[in-house]
Design a protein around this nucleic acid. Sequence first.
DNA 1: GTTTTGTATTCTGCATGCAAAATGAGCTCT
DNA 2: AGAGCTCATTTTGCATGCAGAATACAAAAC
Lengths: 229, 229
Amino acid sequence: MSSLQEPTPIVRRPLHEEAADRIRDLIVQGQLAPGTRLNERLLTAQFGLSRTPLREAFKVLATEGLVELLPNRGAIVSQIDTVRLAETLAVMGALEALAGELACRNATDAQLNEIRALHYEMRAHHARGDLAGYFKFNQAIHLKIVKYSGNAVLNTTYRQMNGYVRRARYMANLSRERWDAAVREHDEILAALGARDVKRVKALLSDHLAHKLASVLAELGRPVAEQAA
Amino acid sequence: MSSLQEPTPIVRRPLHEEAADRIRDLIVQGQLAPGTRLNERLLTAQFGLSRTPLREAFKVLATEGLVELLPNRGAIVSQIDTVRLAETLAVMGALEALAGELACRNATDAQLNEIRALHYEMRAHHARGDLAGYFKFNQAIHLKIVKYSGNAVLNTTYRQMNGYVRRARYMANLSRERWDAAVREHDEILAALGARDVKRVKALLSDHLAHKLASVLAELGRPVAEQAA
DNA sequence: GTTTTGTATTCTGCATGCAAAATGAGCTCT
DNA sequence: AGAGCTCATTTTGCATGCAGAATACAAAAC
């Protein structure tokens, strides 16, 4: 038992995972607005499976925080409440600072070049004033930095939080000033990463996220600014 | 509808939550060793419920990382692998540094006094050489700091990771030197917290966790030390 | 006109049933 | 004795059924 055992480990993917992925995408991409009720009968019909695996998916999404389970009243897409959003961004700041530190140490040059490429793509969209395109590459850069930290736990934790926060991106209606500033911050982050300057990367990422948090909070005008980093 | 509506919101707790809690406790407290198979029939008999809610609980525990789901082969208590342990501790270090910072700002004096009390209890157990008692209060202190950060997302994230890590505590067979050093570090942390010295608390907690990580890794003798903070 | 009450319908929570996959025991063949 | 095969048993994955809770709606009371 050595070479030709399993070219492809053909184990059918459990239905509940499939369902969880599909619903997660719908939520994260904003197709299912916060507060929307997730009707079991409806979704089973739509996905072509029975209630059991669907309900299992609900449980998973609930522990991920994307869905809220009301006893005897089913599941709703969780509200994006301001406090939780701020809290999540604060935590993501800490995570990303760590990610930057580790990426400085562990990322290969090729990986840094990948990030660099994404950065220039992002700048291109910024130059054109294409906000949606900008967001896409911005996201990709941050996810890559976290990924190339080489810490899998960090990666999954971050991605999960990102799923929650991402839905709020249209809420922060990003002023032109903030947008330009964010791009400049990215320039600096990239430079520091290239120089493998741990301390600087860490500080820059921490600040970057703090600014993002501040801009989101400003946009939402809530007086919860105190408890953020 | 104002005053006498719901003295206690008597909504029966879903069975799957109950089950998840019970199994989680068994795993975290080490009564269910890593690798143990979780037989559905057995557990349903033991808990007095049917397979459906039990399986829902499995899904939750799986997303929490305490249980591994093998398609068509059921659930096993997840192994504590060294790499993941190290990665988790690194992330917890970042989280706890943030927690310390926020606690400095947000914790009330009464809350700091609570932590202080726990600290002296811990010292008492250390003085007696009572390792189990020491661990208990040590845990409690760290959890309180995180809790009094006032950031709920941080709190739940930290607690979840702690659940995974806690099972490994007996693995790190803590030398007397490291034990003494840890206690001294706690002294300093407490002092800095009392002085509300954000920068210092942050640094101390970060170092404290890094030392813990190093000691665990040393004990386990794995060459994964590079990728930690 | 508004609120309350009664009732029908829908939906959730959980148990159970059934088919497919995995495990294990015994057997055969080398 | 050990490796491979067959078949019975166990176990998982999923669908469905049923009871109770929640919701919706309409008629009645104020």
